[in-house]
Design a protein around this nucleic acid. Sequence first.
DNA 1: TAAACAATCATCAAAAAAGATGATTTATCA
DNA 2: TGATAAATCATCTTTTTTGATGATTGTTTA
Lengths: 204, 204
Amino acid sequence: MKAGIFIVDDHYMVIEGIRSLLQNEKTIDWMGHATNAASCLAFLKQHQPDVILMDVNLPDKSGTDLCKEVHQLYPSVLVLGLSTFNQQTIIQNMIANGASGYLLKNATKEELLEAISEVLKGKNYFSFEAAVALREPQEKHPLITRREKEVLQLIAEGFTNAEISEKLFISMPTVNTHRKSLLEKFEVKNTATLIGKAIKSGLL
Amino acid sequence: MKAGIFIVDDHYMVIEGIRSLLQNEKTIDWMGHATNAASCLAFLKQHQPDVILMDVNLPDKSGTDLCKEVHQLYPSVLVLGLSTFNQQTIIQNMIANGASGYLLKNATKEELLEAISEVLKGKNYFSFEAAVALREPQEKHPLITRREKEVLQLIAEGFTNAEISEKLFISMPTVNTHRKSLLEKFEVKNTATLIGKAIKSGLL
DNA sequence: TAAACAATCATCAAAAAAGATGATTTATCA
DNA sequence: TGATAAATCATCTTTTTTGATGATTGTTTA
């Protein structure tokens, strides 16, 4: 029995590359491709592949969002994330949204076939680099309050404490308190690292 | 007469995609591929293709640097830049370093063939999106010096001017000068926004 | 080779952030 | 309802950053 494969990627060359790699495989049934999330969803209304190879960067929607939708609408369709870069937060989001595995675009034919075969068995598959990234402790942001987040955003936009206090209709000492509790919660000692951590953990 | 084509890209799927697209073309002589700058240069010592398709993101060297080297060592070899993203500064750097054109990885087979044929005629070729990007006075990250980048990275890691001066074996005023020229070049008024812009423009 | 730029150092002043402590008033939630 | 946490304000000191200006020494490169 052949495995139905569908691919969503906005890069024609990658689609063509994967098609070329898989076209002579007896175990693979190439069902087609889409270059954006919308046409992928349209395709799924008519056909259900066994595995979707899904780029995480799509023009109309993020791959993680599409993954979530697909997983909810068609739980039997397996998703393999696909991307150029090795970003742990993205990988984790893909998994949280129901992806069965993750490949980088420098994967070989063997790796691709193995990934497909593994997820069809109900297992997960991660490219070596992705697995390494997953093992690294995640930059998960600490729990901050609504107000602290507002202050954080204004700091990131370059406003001084005085300006922030005006914008939020609070006193400067209060802004300072929030600022300091942000530094404490993020375990950093100055604004530079605060902003860095906040961006990298997806808060900004 | 066939045109000898060589490709440098660290993504196997892209190499395979292009190979698949070009393999039955009468006008194309597929000379091979490399997945990093070093093996590309090694290949060039033995053979000279007419056109190199060159990814701008390589593991061992930036595509722009490789482009420069290739252009100096083998002026007759034409370079077509290739990338996922549409970054104006990169495109401009590639051109400055002697590239004859620029393609995005979502290019179609027709576009690819046209690009190759145009550059062989001695013309330049830019994918539509790249051409648009070149026309727009887009604000990607400003040009900063080696030293400024070092300072920027240390600032982002949370070091104070005093600590940076120790680490780089320079005086504090000097660190200050670099810091200020960074603020100026990024057109920001404080460290918070500096770090934000630097991260978002991919410098950190 | 001259011009342009990078990297270095200096001084003085002001503005801003960071650190330490303590306290009051609302929300929120078990 | 009582405990907990959030949001607010205050004062004071120290450290750090930012601003303004000027100058020297190498390095690239057109």
